[in-house]
Design a protein around this nucleic acid. Structure first.
Lengths: 249, 249
DNA sequence: AGCCCTTAATTGCATAGGCAATTGGACGCT
DNA sequence: AGCGTCCAATTGCCTATGCAATTAAGGGCT
């Protein structure tokens, strides 16, 4: 049976050898021939079977391990991993890109801006420290003149000082930040809430209507960069993602 | 200046050499020292500078390229990539795991089940073919006895015949499918909708209240496996994901 | 049986060297 | 100047080999 498994791994002659090995084993796993827990032949066996060097076999297996399809331990060997917890990968495009992909005309306006230290209410809502200097912006994005999303954003001026001198007249803050700052960590939260009367008026919907709320906070190293609340009219927008079980499609 | 870039890459002595190189360059990029477009020293220069073999340097650079931080082309060399479109990675746990992570007691019940060919209305809602055999389930999941999520699911019996003989009395359909079927592709859509009266009654909320709707369809190779609509009371649940800009954190 | 020690299987990491593929740029020709 | 040709820089891939780290399993001792 170990021999069966060995024989099942085949080269197809297309592309680099390590990739042929990787794809062959991947297909055996995804096709169900090697269910989770199956032990994968050791490197030296594959090496002899396939006539490849150990480093080449190793490279294929390391990559499969990084993709989460197999787990490897010294001496114990390599086994097919259990399917991981499912990840849903959503593309969070910039809002202009999002609107244009829908084939609609994009426009936006800055409704309000206030720089300085946050009010207690604001500090609470965005998890800010009392004393820090921030820019606080409210922006409405439109698609074909209809309100598309209401954006409320805080920019940490200590991390992005250039934002203080930018009026965001031409570039919406999200896009501007992508070009003028770096981030290494982000946190997203998605929830559904009824629209507050004020927000509903701006979005041109009825108060209490279901809205999709995306909250994102971004850091570079440990320094906070920005925090944003994006409020979408729920019936007008949905986020779609397509992907495979192991990260890469 | 090329020499400056070379000098900036340093080993810190912790962990494998290839990983020291990888982290050193990654930090130069994420820290802004090497903005997008900066050209990374060629392998042989790094190799001499660091006293490592070319394969070791190569391994570090290949990994950075796979992470999307750099792009490499023969002859042209290696340059720091522009930040990619942002991905939001959400963990879609199984529902029992989700509830237990909140520290609440999990329970569920199958409210309805019907096997056979889909009604026109159902076929439309889940994108089914008229003639195909399916199992149709409605399940309510509870956390500490309060309704947590309402699940409506279709299982394609042609792809998962074993589901016909399973009553899902002990294991909810989502978890059962994870163990008894494979999937290679999934599509998620997230939106916010007001609760229909029937659904609201089951979820113990007011009709029209904002709910988070997750629709997921799953395939193995080209064969459809299952489709599910998960309706969460919006104010009781949010999906959170934390991640870096380049896929892996 | 229980416990410790040794052995060996297996993966992880690194080196050294070589050939292949791509392509920017220099060079020469018109 | 414009065009084609050739060269060389750079990355991509592979082989062969060796040592290190981990640890399952067996063997020996009490």
């Amino acid at each position: 049976m170990a021999q069966d498994r060995l024989d099942a791994v085949k080269l197809d002659g297309t592309g680099p050898i390590y990739d042929q090995i990787r794809r062959s084993i991947r297909d055996l796993i995804l096709g169900g021939t090697w269910p989770p827990g199956t032990s994968v032949p050791p490197e030296h066996a594959l090496m002899e079977q396939l006539g490849a060097s150990r480093m080449t076999v190793h490279r294929a297996l390391v990559q499969l391990a990084r993709e989460g399809l197999i787990t490897r331990r010294r001496r114990s060997g390599t086994v097919v991993a259990s399917p991981p917890t499912t990840h849903a990968m959503l593309d969070i495009l910039s809002i202009p890109a999002e609107v244009e992909r829908l084939g609609q005309r994009y426009a936006y306006e800055v409704l309000a801006r206030h720089d300085g230290r946050p009010s207690p209410e604001l500090a609470l809502r965005f998890g800010l420290k009392r004393g820090e200097k921030i820019a606080h912006l409210v922006t409405l994005h439109r698609a074909d003149d209809r309100p598309h999303v209401l954006e409320e954003r805080v920019i940490h001026l200590a991390t992005v000082p250039a934002a203080a001198a930018e009026d965001f007249a031409r570039t919406p803050p999200g896009d501007w930040l992508l070009q003028h700052s770096l981030w290494s960590q982000a946190e997203h939260a998605i929830s559904a809430i009824p629209a507050e009367p004020d927000d509903a008026a701006l979005l041109d919907i009825a108060a209490g209507e279901a809205c999709l709320l995306i909250e994102r906070r971004t850091w570079n190293q440990a320094a906070p960069v920005t925090a944003v609340r994006l409020l979408y009219p729920g019936n007008r927008h949905r986020f779609v993602g397509r992907f495979g079980p192991y990260g890469a499609v």
